[in-house]
Amino acid sequence: MTAAVTAGAPRRGQGGRRHRALPAWLLGLIGLAGLVAVVELAPRAGLVDARYLPPFSQMVSALAEQAATAEFWQALLETLRGWAIGLSIAMVAGVALGILIGGIPLVRAALNSTIEFLRPIPSVALIPLAVLLFGTDMRSTLLLVVYASFWQVLVQVLYGVRDVDPVARETARSYRFRPLTQVRTVIWPTALPYVMTGFRLGAAVALILEITGELIIGSPGLGKQIAVAQTSGAVASMYALVIVVGLIGVVVNVIARATERRALRWHPSIRREVSS
């Protein structure tokens, strides 16, 4: 095969139909500019009601107003803090329990059905309970965040532990490695990429639930600010806050993906992501 020659080259092409393609970043920029233009022009041209979708420029100025208030920054901080604490708890619990459950075959077999039963229970079902227990305190939201992201992490860790090479495990056992050493030398390196995938998925879910909790329960954070803006009819502010939340989401995704890739880079096994 001449794969080496053809690999990087365009594999297809129909002569005249093909013109020099624009670089991806430029295309992406054009796409974003197009979105901004539509949001700016559609309400101005009367295509949508400007009371429902204000022009982009108004959203920007509302954002600038927001950014001048201490309240906004306080809310931003609350959101990030809740997200980080919730995700950390979920990570620690998910990894610890995952290795424990996955490492002992009998326990895993016994818990499989339970996990499959509990996992699809929607986290929002806990909202009324959380409100009763903690009121509008940040702990209400934290409960949701931990619950939702915990499953993401746990399931990935279980996949990871299952992926451990049985030969390697037998070897470790035959050398009478102590359980902790076994975890450190055999299980952890194999499971690490899965843990990172769990981190990425958990990070996204944690943010969703953090905002949801704030929005519905009214615990402090950007979600609550959105609810306040909505009830007071400050539509442009509401959109501005939604954009901020979206941008946080983008940053979280980018960081999580970069972390995952870093962790994977040295890892010998190139694997396909187990989609959950």
């Binding site: 095969m1 001449t2 080496a4 020659v5 594999r11 092409g13 129909q14």
Partner: peptide, 18 residues
Amino acid sequence: PSGAGKTTLLRCIAGLLD
């Protein structure tokens, strides 16, 4: 020899490649 463009040639004949 490997890397002689055999596959390229075949893809051109098959009409998969201009």
